[in-house]
Nucleic acid binder design. Sequence first.
DNA 1: CTGAAAGCGCTTACAG
DNA 2: CTGAAAGCGCTTACAG
Lengths: 347, 347
Amino acid sequence: MDRLTIKDIARMAGVSHTTVSRALNGARNIRPETYARIMEICRDTGYTLNAAARQLKRSDSGAIGIIVPDISNAFFCELTRHLEWLARQKGRNVFISSSFYDYAIEDKNIRALMENRVSGIILSGVGDQTYLRLRDYLGKVPIVFLGDNIPAGMVSQIAVDNYAGTLMAVEYLLSLGHRDLVFLGGRDSSVTHRRRHQGFLDAASAAAGVRHEIFTMLSGSRIEDGYRTGLAYFSRCAEEGRPVATGLLCISDHFALGVMQAAEESGVDIPGHASLVGFDDVSFAALPRIQLTTVAQPKEEMCSSAVETLEGLIAAGGKAELQRKTIQPVLVRRNTCGPPRQQWHRS
Amino acid sequence: MDRLTIKDIARMAGVSHTTVSRALNGARNIRPETYARIMEICRDTGYTLNAAARQLKRSDSGAIGIIVPDISNAFFCELTRHLEWLARQKGRNVFISSSFYDYAIEDKNIRALMENRVSGIILSGVGDQTYLRLRDYLGKVPIVFLGDNIPAGMVSQIAVDNYAGTLMAVEYLLSLGHRDLVFLGGRDSSVTHRRRHQGFLDAASAAAGVRHEIFTMLSGSRIEDGYRTGLAYFSRCAEEGRPVATGLLCISDHFALGVMQAAEESGVDIPGHASLVGFDDVSFAALPRIQLTTVAQPKEEMCSSAVETLEGLIAAGGKAELQRKTIQPVLVRRNTCGPPRQQWHRS
DNA sequence: CTGAAAGCGCTTACAG
DNA sequence: CTGAAAGCGCTTACAG
């Protein structure tokens, strides 16, 4: 499957390959007829230029790369879609890849992007090790971090205020009258998760007479993890003969869905016995029958900030200051919360 | 942000750039100490080779491209994740992009992949125009079509038997005792949708005394489209003073979810007044409280077939026969179907 | 085990 | 408006 080159086209058109190159690059100092003839031949023969050769001269592909931990997670899926759309609006080609929550794959993906000389990268990191592994690449290519899995302020970053997010969720539950809260899920290797924990802890301890606890068992935040954690939590309550907390906060919407299922199977009614709050506001949280109350990450705002910031860094050619932006989450009230009614006890 | 080249490394290591290249390519005919010294310098300096230069020599990037119509759709999202994972297992770098259900963008994406000299492409097409626009690229790069948006047998293709899918859905509804069916959604420009329509029509007309109809209003198959179509259908029934069909088939799961919401708002109980069947079996169809009965597309099988087929075509170097595989869908029975009980009339 | 040389397919001053 | 020439950063026979 050998492909035609610029020289083949030149021969067919009876011009030099320099002229073909000029035509392909839309130069204006070329006779209209020559231009038309060349373009026609290119079309007829199905010529596609060799991006590698072009980049070798240009030293930059003009494309940007996007890396997310898990593209099958609705949150990242929606994020990716917005990012890709916005970047294409700017005329950029976009390369997307997932790290599958694996540092080694994340590393490989970054390398692949660097080797392809992308103009910039938008990265949603795997966890708090990401930064350490990333350090070598910093300063070699503009990178915008989406999310706060970064220990210190050494990179450009767009993040939602996760601490404020759980804070407002707790306050909402408190205002409803709940005095027994549990936070389900989250892992220590994620800065994001730690911040959500901290917001919960601070808000719950600040209020007088509020029982609270973080219950975590698995490091993941998928539906499955929520399901198993929920099952474990409800059965622990049953074993110890104490009531299930009336306010349930979850590390993510996916996780909350799993908890919802575990609740159903354990005979815990939501929001009858317990109110449930998620985090992220993925699209299915708004589904009929789900109607999950959750802390929304303003995805469109995050994405347009990320793309704008990256373009700024690229335009500044490495001489730019670090850019950081924190976006405030917003509580979306749907149907999984209500005032405490009856507590659930093992029947 | 100028990057180091192989020559810079060579100078630092006191060898020729040929030797550096050999080290980088893991050649064995190189003295261990020389190899170690070179690799150490590469690591310390953060050298990343220029993929463009390498490809220029190799004429092939070794990567593959994946294009789907809409990455925010759960079905394609899940598909993409599997494809990416499987391809990476084979050591391939993967470039993903979406066409946003737009032929022009689809075209642009294919071109970008061709220009980057990917070894192969897995394409889930926008609609029945895709093939016409694709024709010029066929034969220039191995392409596997995922889905059946192809008019004739001119390409390698992995598709689910959409016709059989609705056929089995209708038979299931019939076996439950339903005699009034409606198919909601779908557009004529999609071969996939036409096949689903045809399966419905054939199965419903083959049975005696079954009332059936295709009701379609919008070309999309997103939640929103299902919601609006559902609302329109229910209100038309109300206006004409006739009952809502007791068996509802939908063009996709997303669409079915929208119909579910419309039903809820219109006072149509599912599965009390009407049974509901989706298509695809996306992950949220299995969610608690959703539990949508649906025709599943065996995603893992489709994806591994697609990747294997593509690898086969690539290995054959353009001399391969067309490969085609049809995968049988499977009906997943959950909670949105039941025997007909009472019909819904405007109250 | 190592190096000099050619060349992959483009782009871009430079000269005309 | 057009062409000859140099060079981007690699890889790969070929020679030693």
